[in-house]
Design a protein around this nucleic acid. Structure first.
Lengths: 192, 192
DNA sequence: ACGTAAACCTAACTTTGTTAGGTCATCCGA
DNA sequence: TCGGATGACCTAACAAAGTTAGGTTTACGT
């Protein structure tokens, strides 16, 4: 097979991405340099250009990878049971995903990297995640766009506050269940 | 008076900060260079060091200024009338403040600038804003910390989503009033 | 009016992303 | 099996970034 080299190439690409995630987690989403990444994979900085066109291309690959992870996360949520339980599960899944990696959180949900715009292919993954979330809500009878928007705002707000103002703690994590109740009561009231 | 020079110095400091805000708004919070700032105030980059110790010191001054503006914003909210009206006013005031300047939003509420930590003096201003918000809530009979935390999460979430996913639009802005109702209903239910 | 210190400059150092161009190994076709 | 080609990596070097050193001019306080 001709792809012996292609497989090796792809493996190295993943190795580079993995090292970059590591650096982004420890030094901040934009706090790393190509030379550091190169050093981590035992190369020199210019060699990285054999695998990515630019630093922004690395961000783009990370963006895509992050949304793939989110899709897996979302896919793992059982949609059976009482709507309250489904909502609760999805809330915790969301929150955990956000908080688990604040660099990823910034990359996927906040426009933080100056000049970086995701490519159309990567953005399609983001769209897919939104669709999947909408499907999850539809499965429990919530189908108004406003409701889903309010939900995402609520959850991303809780996660942002947790990460920014009480990293490592649970001050906002403890508010998830009350927030679910609040949201659910409001939905029941306005659904008619 | 001995401060003729001191006043001029302070004026130049403000001029630099103002030019930096402008750049941050157009090119992103971290998308500007000292040389660009210098050019905007008709200087060379090293001259800025007569006014700020470092680029991070500029961020710190902006951080302080941003929270001063927030404090003014909060102070302008009338606390009389029905709690619903007070909440609504404060919600819109918050949201508008967030959305009016997304660079400021990122600087004040998200930890976005790699390596930057606000100085103790600047952080005290942030604390003051939190206290003032708590006082506003106490004035309308809401004094549980959890309630205020949930409120800030909700509002900052709405604003973040608006800025990140629908800049210039009103997709999340329209959810403010429903969010207020949702929050209020939940408060009334759990206040006993 | 004069000495001093503030205000500003140029030159330069380090680190950043990036490009140019070279070297060596490895794979494919004859 | 062997040569040409291509891939993988390197060093050297660029421009732009934050920052420091050190000098010159301006203008204030005594």
């Amino acid at each position: 097979m001709t792809d012996r080299r292609a497989r090796r190439h792809e493996a190295t690409r993943q190795e580079i991405l993995s090292a970059t995630w590591q650096l982004a987690r420890t030094k901040g989403l934009t706090g790393w340099s190509l030379r550091e990444v190169a050093q981590a994979v035992d190369m020199r900085a210019p060699s990285l250009y054999g695998y990515f066109d630019s630093k922004d291309a690395i961000y783009d690959a990370m963006f895509a990878q992050g949304y793939q992870q989110l899709l897996e996360h979302l896919g793992g949520i059982p949609t059976d049971g009482h709507p309250r339980e489904v909502l609760r599960r999805s809330a915790h899944a969301f929150f955990d995903f956000y908080v688990a990696d604040s660099a990823r959180h910034q990359l996927l949900f906040l426009r933080v990297v100056p000049g970086f715009e995701p490519s159309v292919e990567s953005y399609a993954l983001a769209q897919e995640a939104v669709d999947q979330l909408r499907a999850l809500f539809a499965a429990i009878g919530i189908d108004r766009r406003e409701s889903v928007d309010l939900w995402t705002a609520l959850l991303s707000g809780l996660a942002s506050q947790q990460v920014s103002n009480d990293p490592g703690g649970d001050r906002w994590a403890r508010l998830i269940d009350p927030a679910v109740e609040m949201f659910l009561a409001s939905e029941l009231a306005s659904a008619g």
